[in-house]
Design a protein around this nucleic acid. Structure first.
Lengths: 158, 158
DNA sequence: TAGCTGACTTTTGTTTCCCTAAGTCAGAGG
DNA sequence: CCTCTGACTTAGGGAAACAAAAGTCAGCTA
């Protein structure tokens, strides 16, 4: 284990968490729908219009997000309306929000136009801006170049 | 501004940082190549083989990542070899690592098989596990349900 | 009971992504 | 000068993702 990364070819990525996560949210629409879910959207046509995708795609992706356990489909009823289904984030779906936050942070820094970002994200309790950070369990802030990659229990040999 | 999110239909996502970020890394291959870059891969055929993509796709995506400024192409020379080009992460590319870290964290929790994750990520200086966290500028840890979304300077009306 | 509306589905066609297989090409090594 | 190797490119094709337009359908509302 002298230099794990130098032996990159000795281990495979068959069980890679990143690749597995991308199997679920590796397409644009899934993440845009989750963005809208995090904004509080719950109804079908709102998802489609606000995420900017066509209805067939919205229907297919929402169905898959429910199947993957990121959204839960639940009947609800507004006063004077008939019963409908709404889509709500599950815990599993909420745990993807750091991915959205990281994408937003990068987009804020590198990909918005001159006017700046269209939304800002703050801490509800104190109003301060929210950032995505890497932190170790001891409590240190970890800059990207201080991360070490080590073999995990599920490592497969090439 | 009573309830910004309740008026979701009043603002558009034309300038959305998430959507813009997805224009750059919204495909599976780009993120897998960045994963390999973060593992230290620098040569063309290593990228293709380790990311598990075909050579034509690796060539096209690497070219685009260079054009987008996430990777830098630089000549280098190994002893006894001829001059070649290597691909190195730029600062702009390194700033995407939190996205990969967030995906890995989610995959570790929800998408690996029984044996556990294939790699673990630790703080080089202290050895403790690294986590992705949301934190406000005041210093609070921010759970996903305590984030507030507010209008930003670049907001466009619908 | 007739119509309306929200939530989809169906159809058709385009674009993007990715593959395999087979080139090309430049520059050391022999 | 010839060959080998690493780094691509070209050609051909399949699958997935997406869009627009036009249904379908269930259950209030009138």
């Amino acid at each position: 284990m002298t230099d794990f990364l130098a032996q990159r070819d000795a281990w495979s990525t068959a069980n890679c968490s990143i690749a597995r996560a991308l199997d679920v949210v590796g397409n644009r629409t899934a993440l845009l729908l989750l963005r809208e879910a995090s904004f509080g959207t719950r109804r079908f046509d709102d998802f489609a219009r606000r995420a900017g995708v066509s209805e067939p795609v919205a229907a297919a992706r929402l169905k898959q997000l429910v199947a993957d356990g990121l959204l839960e489909r639940r009947p609800y009823r507004e006063p004077g309306q008939r019963t409908r289904d709404e889509y709500l984030l599950t815990a599993k779906g909420r745990d993807l929000l750091p991915v959205l936050a990281a994408l937003r942070q990068w987009g804020d820094a590198y990909a918005v136009d001159d006017t700046g970002p269209s939304v800002t994200v703050t801490h509800r309790d104190c109003g301060a801006a929210v950032q995505v950070r890497l932190r170790c369990d001891v409590g240190h802030d970890v800059p990207p170049d201080e991360v070490a990659v080590l073999p995990g229990p599920g490592l497969r040999k090439a």
